[in-house]
Amino acid sequence: MARSIADPTVYARAARALLTALASHPRTRLIVIGGAGSLEVEPGIVRADSDELLHETLDQIGLPRDYALAVRGHRDALNVLRTSNRLWTYFSPAEDIAPGERTGRFRIGGDQPVLDAEGRSRISAEDAAVALIDEAELPRFVQRRFTIGY
């Protein structure tokens, strides 16, 4: 975790470098696994853009507030991708992702978290893997971000 906080610009720099590499391979698709901090908690309101919202979430999940730098780094990488005409997909898993059961039953969303009946954004790592492989095999979110949840 310390490395992701030490230089949060690394995410956007990596995104630019990967897009540059794709210039000579225009049919190659890039799939990036990012974070949920860049999802909109309400239309037009991104958790990563608000110290209050971001710190509240980090406190709830037990991460140090310094981790906000890494969350914003992921958001910046997504913004770099959004300016590109390359073939990219950005995957933001649910806010709460942990090992669990592979159910194969989840919902897919775009820029806002998918919430369960209790208002939580959650997914098992196993179902997140299924969603990612499904997207790699059958592209539906080219030049867009997607998320999943129960």
Rank of each mutant, 00 (worst) to 15 (best):
P139D: 04
V46Q: 06
A48T: 12
T28E: 12
G37H: 10
V142D: 10
R16T: 05
L69N: 13
A36W: 07
D7H: 07
E118G: 07
E101I: 11
I31P: 08
E56P: 00
H74A: 12
H55G: 04
S24E: 14
V130F: 01
L115H: 01
R145S: 07
Y150V: 15
R102K: 12
P43F: 08
G119V: 05
I97D: 05
L53I: 08
D116M: 04
E126M: 03
R75W: 12
A129M: 02
F146R: 09
R27D: 14
G44E: 09
R105D: 14
F146D: 08
P64D: 04
S121E: 00
R16F: 02
P43T: 10
R75C: 10
D96C: 09
I33D: 05
P93Y: 03
L18Y: 14
E135I: 07
D66T: 14
R122P: 01
R29A: 11
L81C: 05
I148Y: 03
H74G: 11
P64G: 02
P113Y: 04
A117H: 15
R75Y: 11
G34D: 01
Q143M: 03
A21G: 14
D111K: 14
F91Q: 06
L39K: 01
H74R: 13
N85Q: 12
H74W: 11
R72M: 08
Y90M: 01
P93D: 00
V71D: 13
A21L: 13
L115I: 01
